[in-house]
Amino acid sequence: MKLNLARNEVLVALVILAFCALAAASDPRFLSIPTLTDLLRNGIILGIFSVGAMLVLVSGGIDVSFTAIAAFAMYTTTTFLLEHAPGLPWPVIFAISMVLGALLGCINGVLIAVFRLPTLIVTLGTLSVFRGFLLTFVGSNMISALPPEMRNFSRLMMFRGTNADGSFFSLPWAFAALVIVVVLTWFILHRTMLGRSIFAVGGSVESARRIGIKVTRTQFFVYVYVGALAGLAGIIHASLSRLANPFDLVGLELSVIAAVVLGGARLTGGYGTLTGTLLGVALIVLVQNSLIVIGVPSTFQSITIGILILVGTGLPAWQAKRQAARSA
């Protein structure tokens, strides 16, 4: 089979392979289970965010407010629990955070789906609103004494092991959340009319309306779903880092969008795959954590990600431009 270099998935996969080959060449210990578990662990939050961001891009919009939603849902849930119900089991805690996230997503949904405001600007606005509201009215102090159930959750390990040098490695059960999110999203996108409608709306809003797709409802769902995912990512982040920091997470949104776009989702809507998105996440996580292994100082992290974005999105853009010139 011919490798299609114009497809971002293939390109990103090749870059990941090259990266790993380079890393293994300079440090043989790189190719090991601890490295893998570290990468997987570091990819949980970014991964959940990315799946949501991908969904928004597919529907033809863009969302930069999800990190603020995550921080809001996570911190509000934590403070509420500490005051009123510190003993709730973790599934309930997660549900509360997700519902909060979904509610904030509703606000985006109404502004975008009902009032049809431009998505980038709306979510820039709601990013400020959510964050401002959180820090003003809910609180701005870090909380390290989390409800016991959150701490317990972070101790649940899928497996753990010991390295040759005696150090430990492990993969928390939180990783399963990412897997569930991916599977659920795959099911929605490919096995439900709602999911197909998201693709259809991203492909052409006008056509979707003409054949009777409920465009408003579809877009609304997207923003609510992304809100819920953000709520989930937020609470997992707090649990794993054993700290509810209201200043956390905001600022990640551009890296998330970078991962999704690297994975082949298009800003114009209608295109995006889970495989591509996860590959994009893997690449970003690799660069963020293991750049030093291939001999690049970590101060070059941001340059590297920038170059990856420019190459990863510039190459297809350039090919499209040349193709247009050739055929026109």
Binding site: L254, I257, L267, I305, G306, L308, L310, G314, A317
Partner: peptide, 15 residues
């Protein structure tokens, strides 16, 4: 290159 400005300046901003 024909890149959408959002992506071009997102990437270059990081650089």
């Amino acid at each position: 290159i024909g890149m959408p400005p959002i992506l071009a300046t997102l990437g270059s901003g990081l650089i």
